[in-house]
Each structure stands twice: as structure tokens, then as C-alpha cells.
């Protein structure tokens, strides 16, 4: 007779999971630790110091990184807002407007930015802007970012809308609310967690992008990733580790926020 194996408890799987976490976190933790290194050499540990953080804000490269940071955050906020608006409208159409022509094609279109390889999108965007005679710069980065942020904003928003039953809106309509009122006063408040998660994901994705930005940024315009990439090409310097750690902190804060919001939304139901 077959031995009753408990398939839930494969020995070794726990160890592999821990290994997995170790591999994922070790490089980030090491860089965060070394960003506090007092030594100018990146190899030797010379005691705890905040001097590379001071260097980031006041050192010779500070203006470059400040401008890059302003560009990055402006674009990320703007692109995330636009992508969230577009994605919310799209999610209403896909989840609340019944059947209509082109619905399946629309879903494919919304997901298209996820399917086209990033390098291809980068090349295509560059030749497009050049062909129509659009000068590459901040605006072209902004437009390109909106496009690839749309599916990331759409996923959590649509998922949330699916889980909210439309009975509340039906009740509102029975009480003579117009569709716009039903959306604004009933659906939208219920959608807040999904919309916030969508916005945060789009924001992080925009902040993260290097490849597409690098193609459409034009001369002299830098975002944080392109500025960091330019520096890293000449070797990893301690101030880069400090910037990386700061940016890492921003990402962790935003993802944690998104997670907490998502959980709050779930438990409310």
C-alpha cells in the first residue's frame, strides 16, 4: 500500500524558500550597509558614517541628482495620475458596461504594453517621436510612461471592481440616481483601495523605468535611473550606494503602503 505522504510538507521546501529570500535580499542589504561606510574605498569597511548621504545632497554631483530626482518624481506622479484615470475609465467599461463590440480587443490592447518587450517599446517610441518631429525631452518621457503605466494601474483597479457587487449601484439607480451619480457617489468610494493600489503601482513602475526613458529622454535630461546608470558605468561609487539606499527606502515604503491599503480593502468586505 502507498505510504500516506503529507504532500503539504515536502522536506527542503522551507529551506529553499529561505534561500530564495536570502538571494533576493542579500544584495540590497549589503549595499544598504556599505552606504554607511566611512571609507572612500568601497571594499573596506571603515566604520559607520553618514558622509555619503551628506555627499548626495551637498557634494559635487548634488545638483545633477537633485534635478534628476525632481524629474523622476514629477514624471512618476503625473504619469501615475493620468494612467490611473485612464485605467479607471477602462475598468468601468470592462466590468460594468455589459457586452459591446471590441471588448475582447480592448482587453488585449490594455495589456499590450506588458507583452511588447521593453527594448522594442523603447525603439518604437524613439523612432515615432523623431518621425513626427516631436523634440525628445521631459514631455516625451511623460507620454511614454503613461502608456506602460496603464496596465499596471488597470490590474488592481479591475480586480477590485470585480469583487465589488453592483447591487449598491443598482439600488442607487432604482432611487433615480443618474449613472454618473451612481458612479461618483456609490462605486467610486467603494473603489478607493483599488484605485490607490493602482496609482501606487503605476508610480513605482514609472520611477523604476530605465530603458524606455533612456531612449526618449533627449540630450541633457536625466531621471534618477538614467543618472545612476551614467555614474555606474564609471564604477560603483559610495554616493551611488547612498542614493540607491534612499530610492530603495522609497520603494519599500510605497509597496508597504499599497499592501496595507489592499488588505484594508479586503477586510472591509
Amino acid at each position: 500500500m502507498a505510504k500516506p505522504v503529507d504532500l503539504r510538507r515536502f522536506t527542503g521546501f522551507r529551506a529553499i524558500t529561505w534561500l530564495c529570500l536570502f538571494v533576493l535580499y542579500a544584495p540590497l542589504v549589503i549595499v544598504a550597509i556599505y552606504s554607511f561606510n566611512d571609507s572612500t574605498s568601497i571594499t573596506r569597511w571603515g566604520g559607520f558614517s553618514l558622509k555619503w548621504y551628506v555627499d548626495v545632497f551637498t557634494g559635487p554631483e548634488a545638483p545633477k541628482f537633485r534635478d534628476a530626482a525632481i524629474n523622476s518624481f514629477t514624471i512618476a506622479i503625473g504619469a501615475a495620475v493620468c494612467a490611473t484615470l485612464i485605467a479607471t475609465a477602462a475598468a468601468v467599461a470592462m466590468n460594468r458596461a455589459g457586452r459591446f463590440r471590441g471588448k475582447t480587443a480592448s482587453l488585449a490592447l490594455i495589456n499590450l504594453p506588458l507583452m511588447v518587450p521593453e527594448i522594442v517599446t523603447a525603439v518604437a517610441s524613439l523612432v515615432f517621436f523623431i518621425t513626427i518631429g516631436f523634440k525628445t525631452g521631459l514631455l516625451t518621457i511623460f507620454i511614454a510612461h503613461i502608456v506602460f503605466c496603464i496596465p499596471f494601474a488597470y490590474l488592481p483597479i479591475s480586480a477590485r471592481m470585480q469583487s465589488v457587487p453592483d447591487t449598491y449601484e443598482q439600488a442607487a439607480m432604482d432611487l433615480y440616481a443618474t449613472p454618473w451619480e451612481a458612479f461618483r457617489l456609490v462605486l467610486l468610494p467603494l473603489m478607493v483601495p483599488g484605485i490607490l493600489s493602482g496609482f501606487l503601482l503605476a508610480f513605482i513602475i514609472s520611477l523604476d523605468d530605465f530603458l524606455i526613458t533612456n531612449f526618449v529622454k533627449g540630450a541633457g535630461v536625466e531621471t534618477l535611473p538614467t543618472a545612476i546608470f551614467g555614474s555606474v558605468k564609471q564604477g560603483i561609487k559610495p554616493n551611488i550606494m547612498a542614493i540607491s539606499t534612499l530610492l530603495l527606502g522609497v520603494s519599500v515604503v510605497f509597496v508597504t503602503l499599497s499592501w496595507i491599503i489592499g488588505r484594508a480593502g479586503q477586510s472591509k468586505r
Binding site: 477602462a90 455589459g98 459591446f100 490592447l109
Partner: peptide, 23 residues
């Protein structure tokens, strides 16, 4: 759900324009 029936194409227009024109 058909709460906003008839508005589907209109609501999808921004997504179509952005992804269509810029991708």
C-alpha cells in the same frame, strides 16, 4: 454587470487613444 451599458466604447476611448497612438 450592465450598470453603465452603452458607455463602454466611450470609457475605453482614452486607453485606445494613448496605447494606439503611442504604442
Amino acid at each position: 454587470s450592465e450598470i453603465y451599458k452603452g458607455n463602454g466604447p466611450r470609457l475605453l476611448l482614452p486607453a485606445w487613444i494613448f496605447i494606439g497612438v503611442f504604442l
